[in-house]
Nucleic acid binder design. Structure first.
Lengths: 340, 340
DNA sequence: TTGTACGCGTTATCAA
DNA sequence: TTGATAACGCGTACAA
């Protein structure tokens, strides 16, 4: 490995001068600057970032915590789009990304923030936080800036980026309503996922706003395909089934749809189905799944912007609500007569 | 920040002793060891890994290069499963993961290995390498151990992990053959993706082994959905269409299937379709896509094992071929009469 | 068994 | 404009 001292020796100056040249300091003459820089190039010098970090006490590194609640399903689903947005934006802003995956058992033993401190990470981004995570307190009171995606959390250094779940659900419900649906069921997500709660609450709010009594077609799922299938079983046996069902995520919607077709029902003629996420699979199902798309890339980038903004003392907003978009495909049909 | 010197002072020893205790050195008495360790705990000490790295010259960090050839499609597709396997295994083996995403333009300006050296990264893993990457040479001659996923590359420190594409295609073809298919088309992937070439070659090899003349039903795609749709257009107008088509990946197979259905064809009655990858969407299409599943998690873990093995001078194999598995769903049908 | 002294490669603060 | 020197926090060879 070649260091600034090697260059210094070769150039007949001290390593201080070399350091200054390499950092483009104004205190050094243009002459030597070009000379040293060229020499460094020739000698194939590349700086030892570790050493630099030790003295500057800045790592220019962000920790990325991908907390998977259940095996891989979350990541497989659309977590990867977040990742892309995060990686791109943090590269743009000059930060490295240290990637942590923590399974549940590991999480119990290690403290996230401690992990960060040891690595001299300057900020962190969390995805997939569940409300039963033992480290929630620790995160919200973090001494370093933290961006949290899709989880409600407040703290002096906590930035929250979510998609506007309320708007997403309302848009979905409005859409169903506009097509004549009045009996609309809901397939809930797990209780430990706040987004699931939020989506359900928005569903209830919509019903209230329409002065509809509590509708009986609510099924408790857990974001997995199989819980969607179970919902299908139950819905299919209902004496008075709804005309449409909104699922809290695509995976459940797809599982439900697949099962219903197996049971001989036609989607959307016999039942309209909507999802939430716009997962890749939603595009290829039959019929194509009408759903609410999250702009995951934007969300990831927003989280990075918050953390880096805090780090560099530039103004940042504490809460970013990314608008979702209605993705209309073919799994929702019209109700001809609204009845009376 | 609290350092070993602080602990030393509090304990009335020197920082060397503290260092030894924390590293569980055999040179120190059990007595002081427990005393110091407890004190460190109480004082909330956490080691400065940066400083440690500077002196030990080991970072215990792996670089992960996710090279996306075209926008997000690769990562969205199944890249995430690799990621999971890589992250888990490297955590198990005690290595941090530095995540790099390089878009094409960025790649042209920066050298991968230089990036690694600056960060003091000890080894690297590459996913999504394309054969027109300007840094191929550099990677294969890397001075640090490198694990490459799904790309043929050789070098003194290069470990290659691929799924056994040949076996996968052969299994797929055997399966089609066993159901009576004799006119089998192929939907190729992009020329810059060696796996695409390999899969095509295996297709040709199979035909040769069956002494079938060069079959005219080969379409050039690029791994995207839309190229699958284009293939559907062409195939549908063929005077003498094949009875089955094997696509080099699922996305193309799914695109083709969707389009063919739009054109009024029935899958698998009018045409059998097979894919390759077992993407999430393959499960939810109608009919479910029969495909060849890659054990991406195993592949990712294998790549980590190679690199870490090299680093720790434990025996490693240079080439790991992960067997794919046939995933039988409903997009392939039987040909009743084999003709003569 | 512990302490002393040095070095890792860099930046930063003086003084020249 | 440059050089000498100290620091960053840690590990370790050598001496005690």
């Amino acid at each position: 490995m070649i260091t600034i001292k090697d260059i210094a020796q070769a150039a007949g100056v001290t390593h201080s001068t070399v350091s200054r040249c390499l950092n483009d300091s104004p205190l050094v003459s243009k002459d030597t600057k070009t000379r040293i820089n060229q020499l460094a190039q020739e000698m194939g010098y590349s700086p030892n970032i570790i050493a630099r970090r030790l003295v500057t006490r800045r790592s220019r590194t962000l920790g990325l915590f991908f907390l998977s609640r259940d095996e891989v399903s979350f990541m497989e689903n659309y977590g990867t789009q977040f990742l892309d947005g995060i990686a791109r934006r943090s590269a743009e802003r000059g930060y490295d990304l240290l990637f942590f995956t923590l399974t549940k058992d590991l999480a119990n033993r290690t403290s996230y923030i401690k992990l960060c401190k040891e690595r001299q990470v300057e900020g962190a981004i969390f995805i997939g936080v569940a409300s039963d995570d033992p480290h929630l307190q620790e995160i919200s009171h973090s001494s370093l800036p933290v961006g949290v995606i899709d989880f409600p959390m407040h703290g002096p250094l906590v930035g929250q980026v979510s998609s506007d779940n309320q708007k997403g659900v309302l848009d979905a419900m409005d859409y169903l309503w506009s097509l004549g649906h009045r009996r609309i069921g809901f397939l809930r997500g797990p209780l430990t996922a706040p987004v699931a709660q939020l989506r359900f609450k928005s569903y209830e709010d919509f019903l209230k706003s329409k002065r509809l009594p509590g509708q009986p077609w609510v099924f408790q799922g857990d974001f997995t395909r199989s819980s969607g299938e179970q919902a299908a079983q139950i819905f299919s046996k209902l004496p008075e089934p709804p005309t449409a069902v909104l699922a809290a995520n695509d995976l459940m919607a797809l599982g439900m749809m697949k099962k219903l077709k197996l049971l001989g029902l036609n989607i959307p003629r016999d039942l309209s189905i909507m999802g939430f996420d716009n997962a890749l699979a939603a595009e290829f199902s039959e019929p194509g799944l009408t759903t609410v798309g999250q702009q995951a890339g934007l969300m990831g980038a927003g989280a990075v912007d918050y953390v880096v903004g805090k780090l560099e003392a530039s103004p940042v907003q504490l809460e970013l609500l990314v608008p979702p978009e209605l993705i209309i495909r073919d799994s929702v049909g019209e109700i001809p007569s609204t009845g009376a």
